[in-house]
């Protein structure tokens, strides 16, 4: 039986990990490769690296990151952040990343998803969607949640799927950073709207939040950043907890 995935997310700026300063057993907490390897040893099933380097003049940073991570890590990883064309994605994937994630660029140019899926296969294309609860619907935002768009969550989820996305990473802006739990209802609505894997993001604060999202939605993975960075939850403990509560996990 397929196991559920625990996915730590690492923000990388100018080749250095942002956050992640509390690791005593790391010689260099700012080294994205070393931090990734630590998560991997702790039982992370997959990693997501977001290159948040402000200036994208040097667009090689993400490809360089992919190369360094791929040399060391023997689990799958995704790279995202500012990817807006096939050429950039190609350099990242050829350097050993398993998937790329696109967000704002896909909203501005939805054809990008078709191009990426055609060039690399759907399995390599994750579309990240940031959305906010507007009462009767969820509105899609771009640019790190700063700019609202015309698009509605479920319509956009269906469109990216039909264009060839292999996976959707949905972040609820209402829940992100609150540590109050995942957006269970909206996540399940996304799951019911598309046939592809959906990753939950935004709101993880306790181990029980992961149990909720895996038992109350069809999400196949859950992503979190700060609770892992600041060691509020150890991945090893989390997986034991979930297994004890009947969730299928790799250990």
């Amino acid at each position: 039986m397929l196991t559920k995935r625990i996915i730590p997310c690492l923000d990388v700026k100018d080749g250095r990990t942002v956050k992640g300063i509390r690791f005593k057993n790391l010689t260099d907490a700012g080294d994205p490769v070393e931090l990734g390897a630590l998560y991997s040893r702790a039982g992370a099933d997959e990693l997501v690296y977001l290159d948040i380097t402000a200036s994208h003049e040097n667009r090689n940073t993400a490809a360089e990151l992919a190369k360094e991570v791929a040399k060391e890590l023997n689990i799958p990883f995704t790279i995202g952040g500012g990817i807006s064309d096939v050429r950039q994605a190609a350099s990242i994937l050829q350097n050993g990343a398993d998937k790329v994630t696109v967000n704002s660029a896909a909203v501005r140019n939805p054809g990008l998803i078709d191009e990426l899926a055609h060039a690399f296969g759907s399995q390599a294309v994750v579309v990240a969607i940031d959305a906010e609860d507007h009462g009767d619907h969820w509105q899609v935002y771009v640019s790190g949640g700063r700019i609202p768009t015309e698009r509605k969550l479920l319509e956009w989820a269906r469109e990216v799927t039909s264009r060839g996305a292999g996976e959707i990473l949905f972040t609820s802006m209402n829940h992100d950073g609150t540590k109050s739990g995942f957006a269970l209802e909206a996540l399940q609505q996304v799951c019911e709207s598309v046939p592809i894997p959906v990753i939950a993001s935004g709101g993880a604060g306790t181990m029980d939040h992961f149990r909720e999202v895996f038992s109350q939605t069809w999400c196949t993975g859950a992503l979190a950043a700060s609770i892992f960075h600041y060691r509020e939850i150890e991945i090893t403990d989390l997986k034991k907890y979930l297994i004890d509560h009947g969730i299928n996990m790799r250990i």
Binding site: T3, R5, Q123, G166, P195, T220
Partner: peptide, 8 residues
């Protein structure tokens, strides 16, 4: 969910 994606 298809593809079968993850650890089995």
């Amino acid at each position: 969910r298809v593809p079968h994606m993850g650890w089995n």
